[in-house]
Design a protein around this nucleic acid. Structure first.
Lengths: 148, 148
DNA sequence: TACCAATAATTAGTATGACAAATATATAAA
DNA sequence: TTTATATATTTGTCATACTAATTATTGGTA
């Protein structure tokens, strides 16, 4: 395999990642989910972890701080999330879902799992293991930190 | 494997694609390449295909038309690309690289191949085949067209 | 010819992503 | 205590993505 052919991994990766996000976003839209794909990622992580600061949440979802600030602005405006002042540290906030936010997560979770399945048709569990291994290797090659 | 674990493919994919682009962009910047990663993709495809229209180019690089319009605006402003009116169809342009653009592609191509190699450390040719197979399957599952 | 649908490109609006810089607050060091 | 440094978050800027709408032009057809 030539170096040229091989270097297409970056193109294929980018193209597929965009397609996956685009597909999900279209389904979100046609189902009137009222959140974007990235907003959902934030909501989901908040529902699974209580009282995170923005920095902690940013590390969980691998988004940088400015991006997360803006996503949270939107989620607060929609009434799904609240920024509660941290009792000991006036620089930071504790994030938590509102009642509406909790209800939204419960309502959307099963529907979104279903949407996510579509991409994996014709692929197996062992394909997933391979896929994860390769993606994680690339991520670490480029200086990313391991997950847990 | 639970449905939940499996659905993380979208998270891993997005995270890795962003890391790959970010890494390349940092190298581009430290090397004073004067183009972004996406602008490079456009220049590269123009150098390999003469006299494309914007629609044809958009299909090659899998970007939508508004995005491509803006990338071309920047590349024209930088003097690497020119929009030449199509002789038979006044709606469209034929795109071509300027002398400067051609020189830029020649200068950058080998350096960029080198940058791209970093991600693939510890991975093999057969990993690449697996990776490509899985990415292409996902892409087609979500309604994307096959390549050639 | 006149009309109508399709096509090429652009514009507008919103969201995300990367990076740099600014602000406020906390903590450690002199 | 004063100063310096570090941390949490926000703001600003530019580039990319997606959608919808707009403009100009083409081609087919009544």
């Amino acid at each position: 395999m030539t170096q040229e052919q091989f270097a297409r991994y970056s193109f294929l990766l980018d193209r597929t990642a965009r397609k996956v996000k685009q597909y999900a976003q279209q389904q979100f839209k046609s189902g009137d989910f009222d959140v974007t794909v990235d907003q959902w990622l934030v909501l989901k992580n908040l529902s699974e972890n209580g009282h995170l600061s923005q920095t902690e949440l940013a590390n969980l979802v691998f988004k940088d701080h400015p991006t997360l600030t803006r996503i949270l602005d939107l989620l607060c405006k929609k009434g799904y999330v609240e920024r509660v002042p941290h009792p000991m540290d006036r620089r930071s906030f504790q994030l938590h879902l509102t009642e509406t936010g909790l209800a939204k997560v419960s309502a959307l979770r099963p529907q979104i799992l279903e949407i996510r399945e579509k991409a994996w048709e014709n692929l197996s569990d062992s394909d997933f293991q391979e896929f994860k291994r390769i993606l994680d290797t690339i991520y670490q090659n480029l200086g990313g930190q391991e997950l847990e």
